[in-house]
């Protein structure tokens, strides 16, 4: 187990290293970073001062080491617009995004898991076909468009729900449906295929042979085991939703990380954009590492495999 954790952590560190090199290189290959660090219209001497201040007049390896050291110590630079460290801003906005992502996860659960379960139990029936249609629309209907259509129907025409902002539970309904929609479809697919796989296994046949009633077999024996990959996906989805809900947060004026990123793009606040991207990458690498270790803890086949 220790050996597994060490190896897996090593891979995670490599991933972080490659990510940091990628971001570092892209910034430098696509133009002069100083022009992005300076506010538009800065004078030449200001540019030189900035270049020296940020160490951009030194060689690339030296620059990278400084960059890596800063990221490692949690220093993601300072936003122009807010005049505040990016990491502080990120963690200020995190609760709002977390709230939205949790609500969206809830939505994706109540749509995806029951629908996937029914599709698998009644495979090739009308229920299954209905599930397939839902899964298809989940991929084909962009969440941001769904959000706009919901605003039109429920806010503009019916006047039932508030159009934007953070507030009570009513404010949460539309953004979480719009954000959770796509993930509901992916959970549906996974629940279905995972259930089908489990239902074919020997212990389910045995449970049936023992004469257990069908719903006990499905609920106790099959569903519990089929749920493992589903919960994993949900965990990863949650982190993705926190960091990638940009458009939904923009549409509903949700004060989260996605909106922070959008403000960064809009105001050409380069340290902010870069910082949010790095932070998202770190979070996802860490959650993947955690999930892998938990998996290995539960399932010895994983930790003993080469």
């Amino acid at each position: 187990m220790t050996q597994f954790i060490i190896r897996r952590t090593f891979y995670a560190l490599i991933s972080l290293f490659i990510l940091s090199v990628t971001i570092f290189a892209i910034v430098r290959l696509t133009g002069d970073p100083v022009t992005m660090l300076a506010e538009p219209g800065a004078r030449a001497e200001d540019l030189d001062r900035l270049r020296a201040e940020w160490g951009l007049d030194r060689s690339w390896p030296v620059q990278y080491l400084t960059f890596a050291k800063n990221v490692f110590t949690g220093d993601l630079g300072k936003s122009f617009n807010y005049q505040m460290p990016v990491s502080t801003l990120y963690f200020q906005r995190l609760p709002a995004s977390l709230q939205l992502a949790l609500a969206a996860t809830f939505i994706s659960f109540i749509i995806g898991i029951p629908a996937g379960l029914i599709s698998a139990v009644k495979v090739n029936s009308a229920w299954d076909n209905a599930g397939k249609v839902v899964a298809l629309f989940g991929l084909a209907v962009p969440g941001f468009w769904l959000g706009l259509v919901m605003i039109l129907i429920f806010s503009v025409w019916l006047g039932w729900l508030p159009t934007s902002g953070q507030g009570g539970i009513l404010h949460l309904i539309m953004p979480s449906v719009a954000l959770g929609w796509y993930f509901a479809a992916s959970l549906l697919r996974l629940t279905r295929s995972s259930m089908l796989e489990v239902m074919r296994s020997e212990y389910i046949k045995l449970a049936r042979l023992k004469g257990l009633p069908g719903y006990v077999v499905i609920a106790v024996h099959a569903f519990k085991n089929a749920l493992i990959p589903v919960l994993t996906l949900a965990g990863i989805n949650l982190v993705v939703m926190i960091n990638a809900g940009v458009i939904i947060e923009v549409i509903f004026a949700w004060p989260g990380i996605g909106r922070l990123l959008y403000e960064g793009i809009f105001q050409r606040d380069f340290p902010l954009v870069q910082g949010v991207v790095i932070q998202a990458g770190i979070m996802i690498v860490l959650i993947n590492l955690t999930i892998d270790i938990l998996y290995a803890y539960i399932d010895p086949r994983i930790r003993l495999a080469k």
Binding site: L19, V277, I284, V285
Partner: peptide, 8 residues
């Protein structure tokens, strides 16, 4: 692996 870690 590393590139997959960033949301697309």
């Amino acid at each position: 692996d590393a590139w997959l870690a960033l949301p697309a």
